[in-house]
Design a protein around this nucleic acid. Sequence first.
DNA 1: ACCAGTTGTTGGTCGCGCCAACATTTAACT
DNA 2: AGTTAAATGTTGGCGCGACCAACAACTGGT
Lengths: 149, 149
Amino acid sequence: MPMDHQPGGAPARVKDRPTWLISRAFARSSGLLAAGFEAHGGGLRSYHYRLLAALEEWGPASQADLGRATGIDRSDVTAVLSELESRGLVARSADPAHGRRNIVTVTAAGVAQLLELDGVVDGVQEQVLDPLTEAQRRQFVALLAKLLG
Amino acid sequence: MPMDHQPGGAPARVKDRPTWLISRAFARSSGLLAAGFEAHGGGLRSYHYRLLAALEEWGPASQADLGRATGIDRSDVTAVLSELESRGLVARSADPAHGRRNIVTVTAAGVAQLLELDGVVDGVQEQVLDPLTEAQRRQFVALLAKLLG
DNA sequence: ACCAGTTGTTGGTCGCGCCAACATTTAACT
DNA sequence: AGTTAAATGTTGGCGCGACCAACAACTGGT
């Protein structure tokens, strides 16, 4: 390796490609998010946040519905819900009308935790977008939205 | 779950946040990349591409240097290099001046594979940016670059 | 009554990123 | 020169997000 290619860099055919930039942006974004959750999120992760948010927004739901509404796989919903339940943030109760189905509810503590996580997530948005001006932030978000159809 | 919230969606407090959009953009981007590599990339993945690119660009190097130049962990470099070696795309030889160090070289077949992967990667850029106009693509890339400092 | 579909659960895979430990070897310092 | 520090390649492991397959229990449609 003749010269010093500042550590963490990438080959020329890689470093300017949109897919690479997107993956770096994601690394930055998810890194900051993970740091925020670890520092002020009670050790929860993004799956927990998504499920709490879904429950608070749409009210009690079955696990299958939660999975469909959030795009999280049924099996992962099961696991994450068990963690939330053991923390008292969520409650599972049997659906009287359907033998197998559970009805999942957010507890008051769960709502409180969600609100706290909201603050963490808001702070991370600030950090992520910090290098951009207000106008650029709006442009960036608009372009992302269009990219995602 | 009273109403149908189109599957794969996300709660309101999630779906418009920049971190979420970035993660969706990454999911799309890396999904297309994975599909491209699987279809026309000989079963290689992005680590293989990054290492081949680094070798082609900077010439023979030690594994540690490759790791530093690409941002890939030493241990992962070892594993991926072994796969590339077993495919004949790369060659490891002992450094005469240093007992422990290896000198890694791209073979002709490795360069050929790299060029093929270049085509795949180029095609994926097209797919990823497809929803944007030319001007928007330039804006988007510029904003990503600024975001990443 | 039967079959098809749903639900919750278990257990597994994959990619990317990262870390710890270890033997081996080289370089730096006293 | 001798001791210590650092570098190198390798093994084995972890975490997260995202999937998939299979299964028993249960429901609904025909």
